[in-house]
Nucleic acid binder design. Structure first.
Lengths: 201, 201
DNA sequence: CGCCGGTGAGTGATGGCTCATTCATGGCGC
DNA sequence: GCGCCATGAATGAGCCATCACTCACCGGCG
């Protein structure tokens, strides 16, 4: 009885509102986004939003947590496979690109607002991003464990490079021409990055 | 007589205002920044700002253009040297890191706001960023010309990777602990990225 | 008939920008 | 030299539009 779930429930409306918020944030940016538009997009009154969320900030933060958790999951999905480090890396990048293509609006919000948010909202956002960083460190660490990393490669630095280069590629796709799919780039990106880390053969 | 220049001039006040704006933008973010605070920081009245700039947006855009031009210059400084591609790459990254360390407030504004701006302010910002992209393409192209790039490395993709990984490293430094200097990382970053591009030996 | 999720007009705060006024400057007639 | 006025830079108190958020009211369901 603790599960209202199927179709009609409170949870469904909550999701509708959140999805509308993400769309409006993605289109206008967080600051320019108006609660009125989010309400209109969700087909509810302004007041209703405050029955489900604590306000504009909460809407952003919630969307955030959701997507980052999805990203983290995609890292951990890849970890325990029997593939080589190089293949796991490629697979992780492909998964991430797929998740960007699957929900571009949410991805736009995440990539466009995360920097601001982490500086100006502080704690909560930063904690969420830390999870993502840890997940990637694990992936890279697993490469180190099987001697796929050259001597002198520092994992935190490599992690920052990887996060950054993926972000830039994803962002250019999101803000630019989305007709060419993103996923086919994954192998080339993984290849270049992997060669940067690998021991000389 | 057309040169007022030395010390007192109009230009000096213009710069004072712009510098104050950059500081306030960096501290609070563009949207939360108040004209009142910019004025206070520059030691002028609010109205004065509008004698020198067209408004808040113009302040941001002007700061922008300035820093990007500086970045572009640092690429072009490096191009015509007799160093190897690998060394030019390292030198470029070092120059860029130095320029970040030299004016962290301006760099913060640039890195934190550029994404938003390019999406929501459109044209003007995007044109400026295109210059930067072109400059980097030249650098990478010069590597291709001396066979320092592996077959199948696409310059636009490599450019995005380079821009992204630098941004992330710079941003983590700007938002985090600035006590450890950034410049010493340049060689390791250049090394890793270069190995990613270089032909197998 | 009472309860409660939902409503949307209203409120209060905020902050970009304006413009009537003040002030500093320097050229000019005496 | 000495006042006097024209010029325009500088000022900052308000104006006004914009929203996030609230709350008194509504209507349908059990």
């Amino acid at each position: 009885m603790n599960e209202p779930s199927l179709t009609g429930g409170r949870e469904a409306k909550r999701r509708t509102i959140l999805e509308s918020a993400v769309r409006v944030f993605a289109e206008n940016g967080f600051f320019a986004a108006r609660i009125r538009d989010i309400a209109a997009g969700a087909g509810v009154a302004e007041g209703t939003i405050y029955l489900y969320f604590d306000g504009k900030d909460d809407l952003l933060l919630t969307a955030f947590r959701e997507k980052v958790n999805e990203f983290c999951a995609s890292v951990r999905d890849v970890l325990p496979s029997e593939l080589s480090f190089e293949q796991r890396l490629a697979r992780f990048i492909r998964l991430q690109f797929e998740s960007i293509e699957a929900d571009p609006a949410l991805a736009t919000v995440l990539l466009l607002e995360s920097r601001q948010s982490s500086k100006f909202y502080g704690g909560a956002v930063r904690d969420v991003l830390k999870l993502y960083a840890q997940a990637i460190d694990e992936l890279l660490g697993s490469g180190g464990a099987e001697n796929a990393l050259r001597e002198g490669v520092a994992i935190p630095l490599a992690r920052r490079m990887l996060i950054g280069l993926l972000e830039e590629i994803e962002l250019e796709w999101l803000l630019g021409d989305r007709s060419r799919p993103l996923v086919p780039l994954a192998d080339r990106v993984a290849d270049t990055f992997y060669r940067g880390l690998a021991p000389a053969p």
